[in-house]
């Protein structure tokens, strides 16, 4: 029977999911705004770091905190190497980044399957077993942590990008690399740093999702699809619209699944995308100059 408790439960679940979407999306926005590149290998990058941390604590007996740090480090390294070894060497034409990162996505997924196997593995609990509320509405520590992280990243990211010299440098490098270079900004180094930092966010998001789901070679794929949809709806060269879209589509999809059944979640999301693309004035879409996103 429909009840306010169930309504709150669904809403809180959607909010926690949307918060993690926002954490992951921030890394995508950072990379896009500084280098105008789309990294489709972003999800598997986080998956590999998560899987690495799993293997280190479960197979090699490393302390959990150390395994998690190394897992984040692995993700950061892969993200940085993606820029250093691949993106930097591409010709400037649009579209090459999409093609090569799609190839990297397939490679990393196959690599994970080869190294870690095809089976799902139960990841760290990361507070999922710590009840915060537990009468008719159940909230656990992981949900609270997810929301705190999501809100902190959204607000903190905005502050860094708009109110610090680092943010000014990032935007300058993105707007006109040659001018930025001429005033002393190390554009190439800044871009690689942005790619590396994006790895931290996808690693944290991937680990938090793994705690709620499990970890296997494919678990990040549907998550990152939803995150990219949020980016597309909001526009990757903006900040608050995509970040709020991340929260919004998770809440929307949770309610769609609750009301229409789990199988209704994906169709509902794509209906939303179509409606938004049809309803938003073309002028706004054109202004974004980001059809590729």
């Amino acid at each position: 029977m429909f009840s306010s408790a169930n309504a709150i439960q669904v809403t809180l679940g959607g909010l926690a999911t949307g918060s993690l979407y926002a954490v992951i999306l921030f890394g995508i926005i950072l990379v896009f705004q500084v280098s105008r590149s789309i990294n489709f290998a972003y999800g598997p990058t986080g998956m590999l770091g998560t899987f690495a941390s799993y293997a280190l604590y479960s197979e090699f007996g490393l302390p959990v905190w150390f395994a998690v740090l190394i897992g984040i480090g692995v993700t950061v390294l892969i993200a940085a190497l993606t820029d250093l070894l691949i993106i930097r060497r591409l010709p400037p034409q649009q579209g090459f980044d999409v093609v090569v990162t799609l190839g990297e996505l397939l490679f990393l997924t196959a690599l994970a399957q080869l190294v870690f196997g095809a089976s799902a593995q139960s990841y760290l609990k990361l507070l999922t077993d710590v009840p915060v509320l537990s009468r008719n509405i159940f909230v656990n520590g992981n949900d609270v942590l997810a929301v705190v992280l999501g809100v902190a990243v959204a607000i903190g990211g905005y502050f860094v990008l708009n109110s610090t010299s680092l943010g000014v440098s990032l935007r300058a490098a993105a707007a006109d690399p040659s001018v930025a270079q001429s005033v002393g900004i190390n554009v190439r180094g800044l871009r690689t740093a942005a790619w590396a930092v994006s790895g931290v966010f996808v690693a944290v998001g991937a680990m938090m999702f793994a705690a709620r789901l499990s970890v296997n070679a494919f678990y990040m794929t549907p998550i990152v699809i939803n995150v990219f949809i949020a980016g597309m709806i909001g526009g990757l060269d903006r900040y608050w619209p995509p970040m709020l879209s991340a929260f919004g589509i998770a809440l929307y999809q949770s309610w769609a699944m609750y009301l229409f059944g789990e199988a209704g979640g994906v169709p509902a999301l794509f209906i939303l995308v179509i409606v938004i693309l049809a309803a938003v004035p073309k002028r706004l879409l054109d202004e974004r100059h980001e059809a590729r996103a």
Binding site: G13, T17, M257
Partner: peptide
């Protein structure tokens, strides 16, 4: 492949 099983 759903990322959130809470609704179901």
């Amino acid at each position: 492949g759903t990322p959130d099983f809470t609704p179901i």
